Structures are given as structure tokens and as C-alpha cells.
Simulated assay, not measured.
Amino acid sequence: MGVGLRVEGALWGFLAARHRCDEVWVRHDGTSSLGHVVESLGVPLPEVGRLVVGGREVTPSYRPEAGEVVRVLAVRRPQVVPSQRFLLDVHLGTLARRLRLVGVDTAYENDLDDDALIVRANAERRVLLTQDRGLLRRRSLWLGAYVRGARPEEQFTDVLERFAPSLAPWTRCPACNGPVAPVEKDEVEGRLRPGTRRSYDTFARCLVCDHVYWRGAHGAHLEAIVEEAERIVAAAALPQAK
């Protein structure tokens, strides 16, 4: 007899189609940890909030006995993390720019391999955001999370709903994550095209990479992204206020 797993519906996306049911029975050798059993079905442990056996919560290191039934519950949202600082893997560049736009501390480089990502996430205590399940299974990673969604809009919503981070729109450079501060027009005028000099008077500059910003033709689109982000975070944070 094996071990029964009752996987919460929020985690079914990680399961093979044949396992998406109320209760899955899997073979158990009597020595493997519960965490190993859960991950063998495709569910990364960072996505698991609680493991419950016989009404009591257990840790992933628990060794289940034959015939036991385990409830596998997803991480509750919004998830409280030690640090609202993030590191994104190489496939999430657009998401990184959107998070920076709304002022979330977001590190991103498009040339880091898995080992380098883990080293940086651990050293800087950043939550690693990825769609690589194998990366989330690395025991050396201090904290990670799977990003749901195929499109950047879906990924952005998922991260905001999951973490409800504090927002500070227009304070970070979308290009490098550095702080952005207002700058007088005459300080950057020589770097502007004639049309920009004639049409705009309010500018900001990144204090790290020196990139200059202004509310151009794309400003309305960016403002809509910021407004939607604020709405999502406000809604996501409501359970914490109860």
C-alpha cells in the first residue's frame, strides 16, 4: 500500500492530467521523505504552504507510513516573505521591467545560469522568481516562487497577487533597477532630441545608469499599468487587514 495525497486544486497545474483528482495514491518505499513524494508528482516544495497528516501539520522531512493520507495545501496569498526583494531568471525580462516601473526592487540579468542565480539570490536575500520547476527544487536555494502565466500581463498579476509588495511607482529605473530622481531640464537638455526639448519640461534620471526619463507618448500606457498594479495589490492585501 502506498501513500495518498490530496493535492489542493491551486496546485493541480503542476500535476500530470491523470493525477488531477481528489486523491492520488503513490508508491512509497518507506524511507523517502514526504517532500520527496510530493515533488515526485511535479509540485515544487516552495509552492506548498502546509502538509497535513491526520489533522496535524508535518514538515517535508516527515516520513509517511503506508496507508496514510496527506493533504497538500498551496501557499496562502498574499505570502509574507522575509524580504520583498526579487531576482528574476533570464526568461522574465519584461516582468522585471514592469515590477521596476511600480517601484519593486527587482534584480535581473539575461546571462546568469542556474548556479549564479542561486548564489545571488542567497547572497542578497532575494526571492527567486522563475518558471523552472527544477530550479525551485534545488535545496541550496533559500527561497523561490513559481511564476504563473504565459504572458507578461499574467505574470505581473500573479506576482502582485502572491506577494502584495509595497509599491513606489516611478522611483526605479526599468533598465537597471537603480533609483530615479527628478532632474532639471537644463541638466539633460543637450541629450534630448529637438522634438522632446520642445514638448516636455519634466524629467527624471537614473542615479546609476544615467538614463533620462520623461512622460512621452507611451506615458498613458505606463500610467495604466501603474494604476492596475495599485488596484491588484490593494485587493490582494485585504486578507491581511482582517
Rank of each mutant, 00 (worst) to 15 (best):
D115C: 00
L135R: 12
W12Q: 08
E47N: 00
L167V: 10
A150D: 11
Q240P: 00
D22R: 13
A116K: 04
E223M: 04
V159H: 04
L222R: 10
A234F: 09
R197C: 05
T106R: 06
D201S: 15
S32C: 04
R77W: 13
E109L: 14
A237V: 07
G30M: 11
A107P: 08
C209W: 15
G219D: 07
W25T: 11
V119S: 12
L135E: 05
D29A: 00
L88T: 07
R126F: 01
R215T: 02
V24L: 03
F163Q: 14
R85E: 12
C176S: 07
T157S: 13
V3G: 07
A96P: 14
R215K: 02
L73C: 07
E47G: 02
V180H: 07
A96F: 09
L45T: 04
V43M: 07
L87M: 01
L95Q: 08
R20D: 00
D111M: 04
R197Y: 04
L88W: 00
D29P: 02
A150R: 13
G216L: 14
A17C: 01
P179L: 15
R6Q: 01
V180A: 09
I118L: 13
G134D: 11
F86K: 00
S199K: 14
E184L: 12
P182F: 12
V81Q: 11
C176E: 01
D113E: 12
R120P: 03
A220D: 10
R191V: 11
E154T: 12
P64Y: 10
I232S: 08
Q84R: 02
F14S: 08
L87H: 04
H211D: 05
G149Q: 03
V127M: 12
V7P: 10
G144K: 03
H28M: 09
R98C: 09
A10N: 03
E39G: 11
L136D: 10
L238W: 12
V212F: 12
H218M: 11
V37N: 05
V38A: 03
D111I: 10
D113H: 06
V102Y: 11
P194G: 06
G4R: 15
P165T: 07
P64M: 05
D89S: 02
E47P: 04
D132F: 00
A204P: 14
E23T: 14
L207I: 06
A17Q: 15
R77E: 14
T202I: 05
P169Y: 12
L160V: 10
L192E: 11
G13R: 06
V24T: 12
P239L: 01
P44G: 07
E189Q: 09
N177M: 11
V212N: 06
V90E: 15
S40D: 14
D105P: 01
V70F: 05
E189M: 14
A123V: 07
K185V: 14
A235K: 10
V26H: 06
A181E: 15
L160C: 13
V183Q: 03
H36S: 01
N110I: 03
A217H: 03
H221M: 07
H28Y: 02
T31D: 00
V72A: 02
P152V: 06
